[in-house]
Design a protein around this nucleic acid. Sequence first.
DNA 1: TGCCCGATTAACT
DNA 2: GTTAATCGGGCAA
Length: 187
Amino acid sequence: MTLTAEFFARPVLEVAPELVGVTLLVGGVGGRIVEVEAYHHTDAAAHSFRGPTSRNAVMFGPPGYAYVYRSYGIHWCVNFVCEPKGSASAVLIRAIEPTVGLAVMRRRRGVADVRLLCSGPGRVCEALGITHAQNGLALDEPPFVLFARTDEVEVIVGPRIGITKAVEKPWRYGLKGSRFLSKPFKV
DNA sequence: TGCCCGATTAACT
DNA sequence: GTTAATCGGGCAA
């Protein structure tokens, strides 16, 4: 079962934990999402907090689209836009358990260790070949494919990583016990 | 226009 | 543990 736009047209705090365990492929390469973070437009840490700009325009559009931005001038990071159009809320994909296209991902990343392929938002984009070229593309059309969870998963919650505003909000979600998290969750 | 800083990563000591 | 790489957004002047 693949995910469609309706899946994303709900509150971001509801969608984010449900993305843990979902399989993401880009151009036939990817794996199971094990870590995400939610960003809401009323949240000082969100790019959309200060209103629309050319960079974050996709966040202000309809749900079910990819928002890709450049991080620290070096890396790409990918978000899935949620909620009704205009809410400007999205889920950052922070880590994936690589399952499909291991050889392609190893070549793109230049590392052999499977645990280092997709454990971090910049690493996910490099391994899956996501760049500015995918900004604004629909998540239910090629090159994107999203497969719904097939089993129940246990999701753990904690504060988000790498931000300086709204640090206390527990809007990071992870797959319990996964070896592929970007950082461990505090017990 | 200029300056500071960031939803990061890898390579250092 | 610290720091360089590298650039666009946001804000002050």
